[in-house]
Design a protein around this nucleic acid. Structure first.
Length: 487
RNA sequence: GCUCCUUUCGUCUAGUGGCCUAGGACAUGUGGUUCUCAUCCACAAAACAGGAGUUCGAUUCUCCUAUGGAGCGCCA
């Protein structure tokens, strides 16, 4: 039998990290066993549907490098893959449950249900769901409700005695008491199915063998098991993934905790391969001593048994380190390419400008970048004509006694240099030796003079990248305007 | 309130009864390389939630307590 898994998001918001990790694990599992990875859109909630969320989800998956084999935009034999286009299918299965006596119509209004829940809460009842009153309606009552024009929902009859168990691929045997179950709605008054119904009908019809989903679904699984049984279908294997928790504890990672959507991480300058690597290691370990893992390696090694049961806190520090590692592994050409949108956005380069002229500078910046967006600030003094001077650095380094003289004396050395890294290195070192000046007295002031700050790549490389003209212009400006005159 | 799930350094984790003096990584600290900042290298500190069992022997198996999390919608 061919393994088939799916990622089935609801287009009610941007794809967030938890969803991305669920998609990733499904993808890894499918690739590992040579199975299919489907993308199905669960858009049965008309009120919360967001058109732009749909595009965000597919674009995010593409950016992360998690292509699906079948589903929306791809097609396949089990379509349509939008649940909103499968209403007639669900209707048929709801009717079947109605006929078999597994389901019944419920005429309670939302207000009445809210009141019932309130009542149950006040009584301190352990079961706060629906009490099943409409399952006991007489023919007359039904006729009365119908004549009032009430539009019913359809509820599934859950067993109220015994237990429902299933074997979770990650957690093992899980058992629920049926006396905690309530008759849940499978068809809403607007004619749309609820998640529970649509999900299991589609999973069955689409031949899904393994359902890998967030941990928040585990307590609904008995509902799904009973639905499968009512239809006489074999349930798939369930695997409930632990949730991603916010740093410091206190619950699931959510929008309130800052950046949760995948595209926010793209905008911040993270590489998709770093994010994927990091997400994979949240709740799963590739090996005892390897943290940087390619997707191919993950696919080879992936297995459900080794996924952690407990939730994992999202601490961004390790992701930052990983991003730096991935940046350092890039070729200069690739790095430049990836930084380009941020440079264009900052107005530092023109979109169609020649990129190769930046390769040398990019190679200097490469070991210093944590996020791709860091490039904007780090490259600014190389590309701009007018640079910003850090006030503190100017005061502490340039305004010192003797600096003006040292820099002024250095000028002819630079002017007569042919400006290669080697010749600059040799000439400036010879200058320091001759004048008996320490690197701190020469290199640091020079650095502030030409870059505007006290931190930069190596001085000689920086001067070479800047070129003679910019170097001398900035040096002259610094000597006349930024240094302190002789006491 | 009820149900289900969880528990190893600050964080992510390895560990499937003896290989554990509990390993790795991030973060932290110290030192080295060095013209600054990074990179790179070395070293250090840092954990089996608690209690009962089972066993010759428990991080590992069982139970209880505690902790943390999730769910209890005409939302998914």
């Amino acid at each position: 039998m061919k393994y088939r898994v799916r990622f089935a998001p609801s287009p009610t918001g941007m794809l967030h990290l938890g969803g991305a990790r669920t998609a990733l694990f499904n993808y890894l599992f499918a690739r590992h066993c040579g199975g299919d990875f489907l993308l199905r859109i669960e858009d049965t909630d008309r009120a919360r549907f967001q058109q732009d969320a749909l595009e965000d989800i597919t674009k995010s998956l593409e950016w992360l490098g998690l292509p699906w084999d079948e589903g929306v935009m791809k097609g396949g034999e089990c379509g349509p893959y939008f649940q909103s286009e499968r209403l007639d299918i669900y209707k048929k299965y709801v009717d079947e449950l109605l006929e078999k006596g597994h389901a019944y119509k419920c005429y309670c209004s939302e207000e009445e249900l809210a009141a019932q829940r309130e009542e149950a809460k006040e009584k301190g009842l352990s079961v706060q769901g629906y009490d099943g009153r409409c399952s006991r309606l007489t023919k007359e009552q039904i006729e009365k409700y119908e004549s009032e024009g009430r539009i019913p929902t359809v509820r599934f009859k859950m067993p109220k005695t015994g237990t429902t168990s299933f074997t979770d691929a990650i957690r093992g045997e899980v058992t629920y008491q049926n006396d905690q179950q309530t008759d849940f709605i499978i068809l809403k008054a607007d004619g749309y199915p609820t998640y529970h119904l649509a999900n299991i009908v589609d999973d069955h019809l689409m031949g899904i063998t393994h359902v890998m989903r967030g941990d928040e679904w585990i307590s609904s699984t008995p509902k799904h098991i009973c639905l499968y049984e009512a239809f006489g279908w074999t349930p798939p294997t369930f695997a409930h993934l632990p949730v991603i928790l916010k740093p410091g504890g206190g619950g699931k990672l959510s929008k309130r905790d800052g950046d949760v959507s995948v595209f926010q991480y793209k905008e911040k300058g993270y590489l998709p391969e770093a994010l994927v690597n990091f997400l994979a290691l949240l709740g799963w370990a590739y090996s005892e001593d390897q943290e940087i893992v390619s997707v191919d390696e993950m696919i080879k090694a992936f297995s459900l048994e080794h996924i952690n049961k407990a939730g994992a806190q999202f601490h961004v520090e390790k992701l930052n380190w990983m991003n730096g590692e991935y940046i350092r592994k890039l070729t200069v050409e690739d790095l430049t390419e990836r930084c380009w949108p941020y440079l264009v956005g900052a107005g530092l380069v023109k979109e169609d400008q020649d990129k190769s002229s930046l390769h040398y500078i990019m190679s200097l910046l490469q070991p210093r970048l944590v996020l791709l967006t860091d490039v904007v600030d780090m490259i600014s003094y190389f590309l701009k004509d007018e640079i910003d001077y850090n006030e503190t650095d100017v005061r502490k380094i340039l305004k010192k006694e003797g600096i003006r003289e040292n820099l002024a004396a250095l000028r002819p050395v630079l002017e007569s240099s042919d400006f290669t890294v080697e010749s600059l290195d040799a000439a400036i070192h010879a200058f320091m030796t001759e004048k008996e000046l320490s690197p701190k007295k020469v290199l640091q002031p020079l650095r502030v003079a030409v870059t505007g700050r006290s931190c930069s790549p190596g001085m000689f490389e920086t001067l070479f990248a800047l070129g003679k003209e910019k170097t001398l212009k900035r040096l002259d400006y610094a000597v006349s305007e930024l240094t302190a005159p002789e006491a």
